[in-house]
Simulated scan of single mutants.
Amino acid sequence: MKFGNDLRIKTVTTWFPPDRENVEDAVAAGKLDTEDVDRLGLTGLPVSTRWSAPEMAAAAGRDAISRAGWSPSNVGVVMHTWIYHQGHDMWSPPHFVANEVGAPNALVYGVQQGCNAAALALQLAALHLDAEPGLGAALITTGDRFAPPGMDRWTSDYGLGFGDAGTAALLHHGDSGPDDWALLSLASETEAALELMMRHGNDFSAAPMSHSSSIDLRRPKKSYVEAYGKDKFTSIAGRSIRKVIVDAVRDAGLRLDDPRIKYIALPRLGAYLLDANYVPVMNDVLKAEALQFGADTGHLGCGDFLANLADLRDRAPLEPGDIALVIGGGAAWTWTCAVVQVPQEQAAERSD
């Protein structure tokens, strides 16, 4: 999906709580062994002992609006995404976020797409802005808090640890002001048959947490692999990851070996999962360097995609005109790749 020359990410922010759980703590508690530590490749995880998931999302949203130097009235649509409990049942966290950032009359969406939801929200926001030129800007937020007793951030899934955070991005049609990124293109690929992986061996239940007292994503995945083997998912994932990269780069009007493509930011999964599913495709398809930003944050649920955009801006040595890719995926299953560019106007600003 090509977006033209003027669709911009004004800014992107990540809000982390101050407390942490270190990997040594998880080992001491008997949640991880030495092999688990190596497979995860983590030093620790941000942990919220006070803030709910939507409160962290709202904090990131306020930071984004402040960083942009905008009035909240510029925001015409708010899209909030999450994968885990938001603090209340039968409640709308997107409306909370919109009100908390000062945009109570914005059009509000909740986007549910697993851990890929922020990428899909970015795509939906782009379509909205193209369809409604007078809408102003779109605010995309994510927020998750993986707190007990409903979840164990170290053991609820294979190959990753869950960190707490809120993230936010402001998408708009470019004006004369500076922007973090030009959004050149975005491509997605879905294999909906893989939804079975997340529920295999479990009947449909009548109420939340009926299958176990805490979220256990390992059990249905193990059941699925026993029935179908690992190769089925690995093959589909590799093919889909390759396709979204190739499609996104093509839609941006680029070649895969374009020297302006400097980096691709990978999801904040464990080292073993990245090496098994993402790195082989990167090495085969791109000359760009693959970056992994999650060693000190773990997997942020929906937040990986936007947090990676923020870290590319702040931690990667990019110049005006340079291009980066961000890739993500979410159960079960959609993969997305975005192509972003440091705006060319920044070169003129630096020379003034």
Rank of each mutant, 00 (worst) to 15 (best):
K243N: 15
E35D: 08
L7D: 12
A117Y: 03
Y84G: 03
V12C: 15
S176A: 11
L318Q: 08
E349A: 14
K230D: 09
D152W: 01
S52F: 04
E21Y: 06
G163M: 04
H95Y: 06
A187K: 03
A98C: 03
T155F: 06
P54G: 05
G253L: 08
W91L: 11
E319S: 11
D304F: 07
D284F: 01
A265E: 02
V279D: 11
I261S: 07
E191Y: 10
M151Y: 00
P259I: 09
E191T: 05
S92Q: 12
D275S: 14
M79T: 07
N202H: 15
A347L: 11
A331G: 02
G143F: 07
L266W: 02
V111L: 09
T34S: 12
E21W: 13
S351K: 14
L217H: 08
S71D: 13
P259L: 10
R250V: 10
A126H: 01
L129Q: 02
K230F: 10
D38M: 14
E345N: 10
S92K: 04
S223C: 07
D275R: 15
R62C: 10
Y263T: 12
G159D: 11
S235C: 07
P267G: 05
V78G: 08
G330C: 12
P343R: 05
D180A: 14
L274H: 03
I245L: 09
D63M: 13
G76I: 10
E100Q: 15
G110M: 02
M209N: 09
I83M: 15
S71G: 07
K221T: 14
A26Y: 11
A276H: 08
S48K: 08
P72M: 14
Q344E: 15
V285S: 07
T43L: 08
L127G: 13
M282H: 12
W51G: 00
T49A: 03
P343N: 09
T11W: 05
A169V: 07
G253V: 10
N202E: 14
G321R: 06
W70I: 05
A53S: 01
A131D: 13
N99S: 15
D284Y: 03
P149L: 11
A324K: 11
D311W: 12
D19Y: 09
W91R: 05
I236A: 14
N308Y: 06
G61T: 08
L184T: 00
D6G: 01
L254A: 04
T13Y: 00
S52H: 06
V27C: 12
R239N: 12
W333E: 03
H88F: 10
L274G: 09
A290Q: 07
S66C: 10
A206G: 02
G110C: 09
S156R: 04
V339Y: 02
L32K: 09
A126G: 03
E289C: 01
G298Y: 03
S240L: 14
W91M: 08
P178F: 06
E35G: 00
L269V: 05
D38Y: 12
A237D: 01
N99T: 14
I140D: 01
L254K: 04
M151E: 02
G321T: 03
T155N: 05
T167G: 02
F146Y: 14
V108T: 15
A237N: 09
S156C: 15
V326Y: 05
D33S: 12
W15T: 06
R199C: 06
G159K: 01
M79I: 15
K222W: 08
A168C: 12
F233L: 10
G298E: 07
G329P: 01
P343M: 11
D144A: 06
H88T: 10
I65N: 00
S92L: 11
D322C: 04
L273D: 01
